[in-house]
Amino acid sequence: MCLGIPGRIVEIGPGSDLARVDVAGVVRDISLGLLDGPWAPGDYILIHSGFALERMTAEEARDALTVFDDGDMTSADAADVADPAVPR
């Protein structure tokens, strides 16, 4: 994945910048720290390298996923978004 992929928040703790996000069927930890909240399960975001970069509407997310579906979207694309952000 190179330009970002839509995801849907499925779980987020109160006041947390980390959310569990469904990305094409794979649930990943994604940082929301670069955007303003509030956030709720069901919100859509555009993700890259483990960070949410933009908030999306459901329609925008659906349109974007349609593009992927027309292309070469695979489970590996979904895996390409998860968090590398915090070095050990």
Partner: peptide, 11 residues
Amino acid sequence: PPNYHGACGPP
């Protein structure tokens, strides 16, 4: 390395 973080490639 990026795969270890889940940033690239298979799960």
